[in-house]
Design a protein around this nucleic acid. Structure first.
Lengths: 348, 348
DNA sequence: GTGCGACATGTTTGCGCAATCATCGTCATC
DNA sequence: GATGACGATGATTGCGCAAACATGTCGCAC
């Protein structure tokens, strides 16, 4: 499977019959190619009878306009790119769903990119994406290399970063303050009566959002005058297994802790699961809180106290802002704070 | 938000500076545009020193080649389209992840389309997708109108249908027999000792796969000489709520049933929750089985007996087959049966 | 030294469409 | 009835690149 794109340049298509062009439609309808183009893009500028003839011709031929050629000529692609780091990330689905809905309603198509976790992949992906000349770009994970940021900025298209409020946004933002949210969860746990609150956070620098939530936890604990109890992950990715391991580490290193907040639901679910296996009373002996209110946990009965983020709205709002900017308008605000909400269930 | 693509045709870009072309790189490197093109696509055909100059020039300018123009000239887009009905469908994430991995490794980019559930959307989507001239198409939900099938066939690109083995495939297939799998699950429940087995199935004709599983159930029950006990959904989409409602209907209409298989995990999860709420002993009083082994249930402790389908492999295999065909090769088999596997856990 | 082939690079052309400008009525106005 | 405004359509051109072909240059065999 080392077949690369470049190796295929000379592959012949078996079918000899030429693909249909606008000229074919035009000839059948008895008009010029330009009029067919107009009938498609600005139908109100074509006389009704002419338009009817053209539409009949297109239907008869099953003509599908070549949007590649159209994009080149019009210098707009009708594409909105969505870039995520991985599909394992639960952020992904609802946010992409919201974006897709908004984008498709305005006639755009989604170009999907996953950057993986390596920095070399990052630039490859970015070239693959920006080379398609998308009219807008939504990022759920920021790019890290300076060159990547430069390329993004130089692309000259609207960009929305999401799921955070970066200090120096590339362009627009739809997100929330992860620091504030981490702080809010910690204070909420305190409000529930917990006094020896711990936090499970990533160790990877790449999970900047998780680290920001940790930062919020630290500030809250400092404000409360309480000592910090931190458990850091081993691996780069927050998994259920990492969550289970974190619970074990917590019981070992901070046995006195009476509550633990996790930087993301996945970890909290793993911790809850491990607590069940060990017969630990949740929330009696230990309160457990997650972050994100991802779909997997709640309907499945984990009934987890967590921080709800309106992921689908983030995508929808990002899409709306992009569409607006592509249309030449200026959104009222370049930074949209979507907020967060502590959802108390039975785990803490 | 009724800004449509066509309304934006005349929107001006604010920045006046022209975008970089290959000519700019060529000039800086002291070569012709064609040599730059070669350096990008077939670097081995360019002398090492020349290549170095060109690469330096590209790096200096932060040049990103225009793949739209390239696609038009080369008559290959480097795009692989993935079409799903909705993002709510649990099929989606792992299959797309597998596809993306295979496609990106071979230098392709993913074009994403969601068809929604309406037939009018179908054709709009198909035009939006096929108009981009993808080099291959993966479908997780087949198109239903005759015209849609005609357009697909006429596109002249490799197509993979997935998650089923259709009787009349458009082109290639990566999937499994939903009839056999439904039958296998029923027989497995029988093997577990259940004798009065019911089945929860969709009512919508659009969920052909669910209906095929129902068909498999029927065949199994007929073979066993056992009477059928069927519960059909009300709505078009299989949700947790539908699953809960189905359990209620089952208790009402077939109180003697000792096991129930659901056409999809989502329904089974809903049924399991409802059973918990009602204090019904699972699996003692009633065995419950799902279908799909979707990520939602297991980590949350539902511990559901289900039919495992390797969704990620489906995507990966589909991607591999597409890449192969795009390269001009012929895969050994146009139909790849990925199989299924009964996973017995504690719910049945 | 001549010829020939392999390699490196350049020139020309066209992919299919949309922007732009030109053209040709038609109709209301005075 | 001449004038201009406007609506409908057509002709030309170029978007940025890659295919196809042309040219140049070198080395090596005889």
């Amino acid at each position: 499977m080392r077949a690369l794109w470049s190796d295929m340049v000379n592959a012949k298509t078996p079918d000899g019959d030429r693909r249909l062009r606008m000229d074919d439609v035009a000839e059948l309808a008895g008009v010029s190619q330009m009029t067919v183009s107009r009938a498609l893009r600005t139908p109100e500028k074509v006389a009704p009878e002419t338009r009817a003839r053209i539409e009949a011709a297109m239907a008869q031929l099953d003509y599908v306009p070549d949007l590649v050629a159209g994009s080149l000529a019009a210098r707009r692609s009708g594409l909105i790119a969505a870039v995520v780091s991985t599909f394992e990330n639960a952020i992904f689905a609802p946010t992409i769903a919201g974006l897709t809905e908004a984008a498709e309603a305005a006639g755009f198509t989604i170009l999907l990119g996953s950057s993986g976790y390596s920095e070399t992949d990052e630039e490859r992906l970015l070239r693959a994406i920006l080379g398609r000349r998308p009219d807008g770009v939504m990022l759920t994970d920021a790019f890290h290399t300076p060159r990547a940021r430069r390329l993004l900025a130089a692309a000259g298209v609207p960009i929305v970063e999401t799921w955070d409020l970066p200090a120096e946004p590339v362009d627009m933002v739809v997100g929330f303050s992860n620091v504030d949210a981490g702080r809010a969860m910690t204070l909420a746990l305190h409000g529930f009566g917990y006094r020896r609150i711990a936090f499970v956070a990533p160790s990877s620098e790449r999970d900047r959002r998780g680290l920001k939530r940790l930062d919020g936890y630290r500030r809250a604990m400092d404000d409360l005058g309480a000592p910090r109890r931190e458990i850091r992950l081993h691996g780069p990715v927050a998994t259920l297994e990492e969550g289970a391991a974190a619970l074990v580490a917590l019981l070992d290193q901070h046995p006195e802790a009476d509550a633990v907040a996790c930087s993301v639901d996945t970890l909290a679910a793993g911790a809850l699961f491990e607590a069940r296996r060990r017969g630990i009373d949740v929330p009696g002996r230990l309160g457990i809180a997650g972050f994100g209110d991802f779909a997997l946990a709640q309907p499945a009965g984990l009934d987890m106290t967590t921080m709800r983020i309106a992921g689908r709205n983030i995508g929808a709002e990002a899409g709306a802002m992009l569409v607006k900017r592509i249309a030449g308008e200026t959104p009222e605000q370049a930074v949209f704070d979507i907020g967060y909400e502590v959802v108390r269930r039975s785990s803490a």
